[in-house]
Design a protein around this nucleic acid. Sequence first.
DNA 1: ATTTAAATTTATCGACCGATAAATTAACAG
DNA 2: CTGTTAATTTATCGGTCGATAAATTTAAAT
Lengths: 249, 249
Amino acid sequence: MDEEFKLNTIAAADMPASDGSVDQEASSKHRRLSPAQRREDFIRKATTLFAEEGFDAGTRELARKLGVTQPLLYRYFPSKDDLIREVYKRVYLDRWQPEWDDMLGDRTRPIRERLQHFYDAYTDAIFDRDWIRIYLFSGLKGAAINKWYVSIVETRILTRIIEEYRNEAGLPAQEPAAAELELAWLLHGGIFYYGVRKHIYDSPVLEQKNRAISNALDVFLEGIASVFGTAVKTRSTAIRKVSGPEGQD
Amino acid sequence: MDEEFKLNTIAAADMPASDGSVDQEASSKHRRLSPAQRREDFIRKATTLFAEEGFDAGTRELARKLGVTQPLLYRYFPSKDDLIREVYKRVYLDRWQPEWDDMLGDRTRPIRERLQHFYDAYTDAIFDRDWIRIYLFSGLKGAAINKWYVSIVETRILTRIIEEYRNEAGLPAQEPAAAELELAWLLHGGIFYYGVRKHIYDSPVLEQKNRAISNALDVFLEGIASVFGTAVKTRSTAIRKVSGPEGQD
DNA sequence: ATTTAAATTTATCGACCGATAAATTAACAG
DNA sequence: CTGTTAATTTATCGGTCGATAAATTTAAAT
C-alpha cells in the first residue's frame, strides 16, 4: 500500500451526461470532442461497463458504447490498467464528502441524530449500482485502494462512532477496543449489506432506506447501551413498533 | 429462476485431498486417475482457482494446476460453463447442513442459545475463502443460484429468527413484517460482513469469531427488545462489558 | 505377450484480447 | 479557400481464450 490516495475535498466535476447506450450524437458521422470531454466520457462509460461486467470487460465493447473505435482509447490512456485506475479514483475518492467528518463529530447534536444524518447521506452516495459493484469487484481483485478505503472507514467512521457514543454515554474517553470496533462494523456492515442485496443480488429490500437505517440505529444504540451497561437517550420517536411501511406512523 | 436447486441432505462426498499447487504425484510422468477421481479433482481445483481469480480464469491454468493438459477438461465437462455449474453446486448446495433448520426452531432452548449455536455453525461453514468469494463472484455475475440462495436465507433463517423471537417474547404469531425482516437482515448482513472483511478485503477482524457473534447477538436481541417494546432474557453472561480479548472473562 | 478400451496428449482452429503504427479526416487559423 | 494540427479510423500484430479432432499411452483383460 505504498501509493498515496487522497479523498475528495470539493464536489466532483460536473460534465455533460451522455448516458445513451451508443453515443452517436445527433449530427454527422464522426463527431470530434475536446480531449477533456472525450477522456471524461471514457472514464464515465468505463465505470458503468466495469460495474456491470467486471474489469475483464473488453476495450472494444467500451469503445462501441461510446460510438468510437477501440484504438482511440490509447490516445487518452496508456493502458487499460490506467483507465481502471481512473475509475477507481472516481469511485473511491470523488464521492467522499468532506462534511461527513464533521457530521459525526458535531457534539451540539445528540448522537442518534448525527448517526441518522450521516448514514442517510453516506448511503445516498454509495448505494449506487456503479459504486457498490466497482467496490466489490475491486475488493475481489485485491486492489490497494480498496484496502486503503477500508482503513479510512475504520478511522473516520467507526472509530468516531465508538468515541462519540462513549462521550454521549458518559464513559471515559479511550481508544476503542477491538471488540467495540467490531460492534461498529456490525452496524456498518449490516447497513452496507442493504446495498449489496439491492445492487449485487438484485434482491428486493425495504423500500424506504431511511426507515431501514432508522430501525438499524435504534437496535444498535439500544443494544450497545444494554451491553455496555449504560443508558443513552437514543430513540428518535416514541417507542411503539418497528417503524415500517405497514405501521405508517 | 426456472432451474430447480436442492440443498444438501447428507454430508458432502469425501475424496482424497490433492491440494498441492501442481499435482504431479509421486511416481511416473503421466498418472491416470479414475474418471470419478479426475472429475472430482477438476471441480475441487476449479473452486479454489475461480475463488481467487474469478470465473474468467483460464482452463489452461486450471489444467496446469492439476498437472494435466487443457483439452482433458472437455472429456469430463462439455463446456467451461458446465464446470462452473458444478462448482456452484458444491458451494451453494453441499455445504448447507440440514440440522441448521432444526437448531433455530428448537423451542426447548432459549432463543439466545439457539442463535449462538446456529451462527457459530453457519459461519464455520461459510467463512471460508473459497465459499465467500465464489458466493460474491457468482452474485456479481447474476447467477440464478445466487438469487435462489438469498431467498433460502430469507425463508429458512431470517423469517424463522423473527418468528422465534416473537414467540419467545410472547408476541402474537404472524407473518414477519417487511421491516422486521429487514432487521433480521441487519444482523445477518452484519455477521456476514465479518467474512467479507476477512476473505474479500483481507482485512484484520476480531480474532475470536464466536466473540464477535456473541456480542452481535447481545446487541441485536437487546436492541429489538427495546424497539419492539418487549423484554426477553437475552444476555448469555452477566452484564459487564463488551466481551473481547482485553476483558477475558 | 497380445489385445482392447479409454485416459491423456499433441496439434490446431477461430474468436477475441490489449496494444501499436500508419492513414484519414474533421476542425480550425490564416 | 488553403494549410496545419490533432482527433479519429483502418489495419494489424502477438497472445490467449474455449473448444475440437486425431494421435498416443497407460492400464487392464485375455
